[in-house]
């Protein structure tokens, strides 16, 4: 049961194509698992379409003198387009699967054309970054092995976690596949998983570890998110 969803503001920005690719992928992947947000997005789509294409925003005067001239260039574009009589066919989507520490798991459709860098392991967490080139925003897949713990940390910027498979818990609750968890520097947590899990994470700055051994990582924090 999904209990954490993207905010309405985020859904609206998503619908209008205003989010970065990394966050758009997060919302899309959430919606693949969440019919409630999917339906909201469909409504928003219709609303934005209506707003943009509503003829009442135009006055008849707008169809002014230069429309004839404009239409000449349109004519050639129309001919150009309709010269090719073929209809496009759907290329079947190749849904990717990844072998994780605890299971083999299918990735969301939203990730099917994104390249992953190599997996690297640190403690209980294996991470593969996505090649999206949106610095300072970085997104990764995180494979946390069964019994794994991420040391207590907070975030210098925001941290979006979309739980794709399995479950984990932290000081604030238990999360299940599809949960969309948005945290920032006001939150400190230490996620742990019993049976292993796969997360998609988007951060715009380093994590800051709060205790013990892992504090040693803070100076190299920018390599770790």
């Amino acid at each position: 049961m999904i209990t954490h969803h993207p905010s309405d503001e985020l859904l609206a920005a998503f619908t209008q194509g205003e989010l970065t690719a990394s966050l758009s992928i997060a919302v899309a992947a959430h919606n693949e698992l969440c019919p409630v947000c999917q339906e909201k997005v469909e409504k928003l789509n219709a609303q934005h379409a209506q707003m943009l294409f509503d003829t009442d925003n135009e006055t008849v005067d707008e169809a002014s003198n230069d429309i004839q001239e404009v239409e000449l260039s349109w004519m050639s574009m129309i001919d150009d387009i309709t010269d090719d009589d073929s209809q496009s066919l759907l290329v079947p989507i190749d849904i990717k699967s990844v072998q994780l520490s605890y299971d083999k798991v299918q990735l969301p459709r939203a990730l099917s054309n994104v390249s992953l860098k190599k997996w690297s392991k640190l403690g209980d967490v294996s991470r593969a970054r996505l090649e999206l080139e949106e610095e300072p925003i970085r997104s990764s897949l995180l494979d946390i092995s069964p019994g794994g713990v991420v040391p207590l940390h907070t975030h210098k910027g925001f941290e979006l976690t979309l739980l794709l498979d399995g479950s984990f818990e932290d000081d604030m609750g238990t999360y299940h596949a599809g949960d969309f968890i948005w945290l920032d520097k006001s939150h400190t947590h230490s996620p742990r998983t019993t049976d292993g899990c796969l997360c998609y994470a988007v951060l715009d700055d380093a994590m800051e570890f709060k205790e013990g051994f892992s504090k040693l990582f803070n100076p190299i924090g920018s390599f770790l998110y």
């Binding site: 194509g17 690719a21 758009s24 992928i25 899309a28 759907l90 079947p92 989507i93 459709r109 939203a110 990730l111 099917s112 054309n113 994104v114 390249s115 090649e131 999206l132 080139e133």
Partner: peptide, 16 residues
């Protein structure tokens, strides 16, 4: 980058 991501993010047609 050249990849077209939009059709995976906002699919025009349901998965095939």
């Amino acid at each position: 980058r050249e990849e077209m991501l939009s059709d995976d993010i906002w699919p025009l047609v349901e998965a095939q």
